[in-house]
Amino acid sequence: MLTLTPADFGAIALSIKVAVVATALSLPLGFLYAYLLTYRTFRGKVILEVLVNLPLTLPPVVIGYLLLISLGRNGFLAPLCDLFGLRLIFTWKAAVLASAVVGFPLLVRSIRIGMEGIDPQLIQASRTLGAGGIDTLFTVILPLSVRGILAGSSLMLARSLGEFGATIIIAGNIPGVTQTIPLAIYDYASSPGSERAALALCLVAVALSVLVLFCHEALGSRLSRRD
């Protein structure tokens, strides 16, 4: 019989919380980022392009380490954290940050693909009908990017549920505090006799991923039906 311990339930709840918070916090920023890359021309745009895609190619451990040294006591982002009274390292918020950074490129890419599919003449139409740039952004571009936003959010949510490398470096693997599903599986896998417990959590991870993808498909087809 595969059973889950209270600690496992804690890890599942934390995983979901981290993934949802990371995706929710990244959404507005990801949308703006995609908008800038799709519709604006400015100097240094190529740097933004490279920067956003970097986490896709870097090993997550490297990202975790870079975050750790920038947010650590002597890191260049430390004063900023102090200013807001934020203590991130080795808390669940660090896990959110790790997930957000690693999943951000997936979010931006999907939203951008959605935006690039919008007929530019619709935007011109809205401008000539009296809508300014920001008005057009919220009344035309945003609603027409919904599919991209949905796709990006599901990808990011799924990716966040599985985030391991960056999380273990900046959030650690503290049961009940920062231990998410992948970290708990890692713990079980490295202690003898816990194969069944590891397998049980693996099944939960699979079920969660399937659920996310299923919801994505269902919402997507509802949107198509609406058209």
Binding site: Q124, A125, R127, T128, L129, G130, G132
Partner: peptide, 11 residues
């Protein structure tokens, strides 16, 4: 800007 010109278009 286009929104202040009051020039409409039928595409």
């Amino acid at each position: 800007p286009p929104q202040r010109r009051r020039v409409g278009i039928v595409f």
